[in-house]
């Protein structure tokens, strides 16, 4: 059984802090969500995950770029990089890094949900025949995606998995299970290529999404649900999962 081997102490040094768990969902309207999945090489599959998590076979990086038109903190752009994994037998994505385009968005996503956000420029441009996405941080282009030839899909043809965000929480350093509900009104599949990806900027220089599997873009509403469960980062989910409510931390 494959198990993550990343040093939890080192991961914890750059993890955000959740002062108190969100009690209400965060509702985002008129969202365009580009999701790209790409395989990465086996050499890094365990090294990028904490010991609580299992890599998938093959290891996969999942990137999402959001263009949010309306939210309690206004319009913003958001991008995150996740390593697909299993928590117990559940499909999840371990967040390695995220970028938000406004201070208010970065603050709410970090402090309430544990997304490891930094400030940057996030651009998602939709064209008649495709979508382009770009992320700039401190003047460097850390992500570039060019996706072409959209094909309409059924609304539930795209699979989204929940996030595991490593954060310092009222229960200690924990993997916060963040369920993000996507309700789409339009979904398209595209052919995509990664024109830029800076692994170091996305949380680990070992990340190497070398083989793009698929890309999709959805027009949707997104609700980020209150955190109900957390997991100890160095213990398998079968025994290391804790209920936030049971711990009286909601």
């Amino acid at each position: 059984m494959l198990i993550g081997s990343a040093d939890v102490k080192i991961l914890g040094e750059r993890s955000p802090r959740i002062a108190s768990f969100a009690s209400e969902p965060l509702m985002l309207s008129d969202v365009a969500c580009l999701q790209l999945t790409a395989e990465m090489r086996n050499s890094a599959r365990e090294a990028v995950l904490p010991p609580a998590l299992h890599p998938t076979i093959p290891p996969v990086v999942s990137i999402q770029v959001w263009d949010v038109a309306d939210s309690p903190v206004g319009a913003f752009g958001f991008a995150m990089c996740r390593v697909s994994c299993r928590s117990g037998v559940r499909a999840r994505g371990f967040s390695t890094a995220a970028v938000a385009s406004t201070q208010a968005a970065a603050q709410i996503l970090t402090e309430r949900f544990g997304f490891p956000c930094v400030l940057g420029e996030v651009t998602l441009r939709r064209h008649y025949d495709g979508v382009d996405a770009e992320v700039m941080v401190d003047g460097s282009r850390t992500l570039g995606i060019a996706a072409l030839d959209p094909e309409p899909m059924d609304l539930d043809d795209v699979q989204y998995t929940g996030n595991l965000n490593l954060a310092h929480t009222p229960l200690g350093l924990r993997l916060a299970q963040v369920e993000v509900d996507h309700v789409a009104s339009r979904v398209e599949r595209l052919s995509a290529r990664l024109s830029a990806f800076d692994g170091e900027a996305w949380g680990n220089r070992l990340l190497d999404p070398y083989f793009v599997v698929s890309a999709s873009v959805a027009l949707e509403t997104v609700s980020i649900q209150p955190i109900r469960f957390v997991c100890k980062p160095d213990e398998l989910a079968f025994t290391g999962t804790e209920s936030v409510a049971a711990a009286g931390k909601t």
């Binding site: 059984m1 494959l2 999945t37 299992h54 890599p55 998938t56 076979i57 093959p58 996969v60 697909s84 299993r86 117990g88 037998v89 559940r90 499909a91 899909m153 059924d154 043809d157 795209v158 699979q159 998995t161 979904v187 599949r189 599997v213 698929s214 999709s216």
Partner: peptide
């Protein structure tokens, strides 16, 4: 559960 399912990787009917 550790396998990577087609539906997870690739949007398809």
């Amino acid at each position: 559960a550790h396998l990577y399912w087609t539906r997870e990787a690739y949007p398809t009917r």
